[in-house]
Design a protein around this nucleic acid. Structure first.
Lengths: 145, 145
DNA sequence: ATTATGCCTATTGATTTACTAGGAATAGTA
DNA sequence: TACTATTCCTAGTAAATCAATAGGCATAAT
């Protein structure tokens, strides 16, 4: 696997906040429990997401985190980029100055790969994820009844 | 970046062997020089590729490595899988036993991402890479003349 | 015998990852 | 004001992975 836990947890945390679109801020503890994330670790991640402008927080007795933007507008790629720096795979560029055989072909290849990845992550919103989860829950019910 | 140097070097080495489709085995040293790869590191990588069945070798004074299969049949994904174990990104599966909210949606999402990646890497042969490189060289000539 | 190559095992230094610890700042409540 | 529950900030750490290196053995041609 190649997506860090940190990134996975960030996505799950945003997802959880999106599912509970409560007016109240949600506590770290509650998100951690719902998504099986180590609490102190999640604390650091949410702080990072705050600095990146995706969530806001309230301190004190009645504190917690809440989303800043609408989940219909929030792409998975945005969170991934905020946490990982970039979604792209492959060498960032040919780091040796002198050209060597294959540089062009491989650069083009990695561009194709990255475009394919971006096509999926850049078009997936958290609203869609929420919907997908709701649908699959429905599926299971149908299956069981 | 998320593709290891090891994997990148493996791809470049195979590519180099494909470009020189010489009857003679090619020495590690020569490949290393052509592709700007640390020699001893490449040595280990080629050995791994040998055990994986992609290349064969000859020892001694006139030794070196050569491809076992035709490059028109050899997919980039095969080498990547041999070196990295798997091409896939995202968590391999939900490692917590109890289901938690989002598991279905995210599993489906990662499947989409991986399918997209595989679509590109599983359809790209080294023959195509060789052709792409040849084309780009032509392009440059046109530009310069 | 010599020499040039690949083959095998092990090691190292640097970096990254996945957390954890301790305590300060803030905001409600009594 | 005190108390408590939360977020916020700075560090630190154990383990894993990565990129590369080192030493010496095996093999094959001359």
């Amino acid at each position: 696997m190649v997506i860090s836990k940190r990134c996975e947890y960030a996505l799950r945390a945003i997802f959880e906040l999106g599912v509970r679109n409560s007016g109240h801020p949600v506590k770290i503890q509650a998100i951690a429990q719902a998504q099986s994330i180590p609490t102190r670790f999640l604390e650091a991640i949410l702080n990072e997401l705050k600095h990146a402008g995706f969530v806001a927080s309230k301190r004190g007795n009645d504190g917690g985190y809440y989303l800043v933007r609408q989940i219909g507008d929030l792409k998975v790629s945005e969170i991934m980029e905020a946490i990982q720096g970039s979604i792209a795979v492959g060498p960032e560029s040919s780091q040796h100055e002198s050209y060597c055989r294959g540089d062009h072909a491989f650069a083009a290849f990695w561009t194709h790969v990255n475009r394919a990845i971006y096509e999926v992550c850049g078009n997936m919103t958290f609203a869609q994820l929420k919907q997908a989860e709701a649908n699959s829950a429905e599926q299971i019910q149908h299956y069981c009844i």
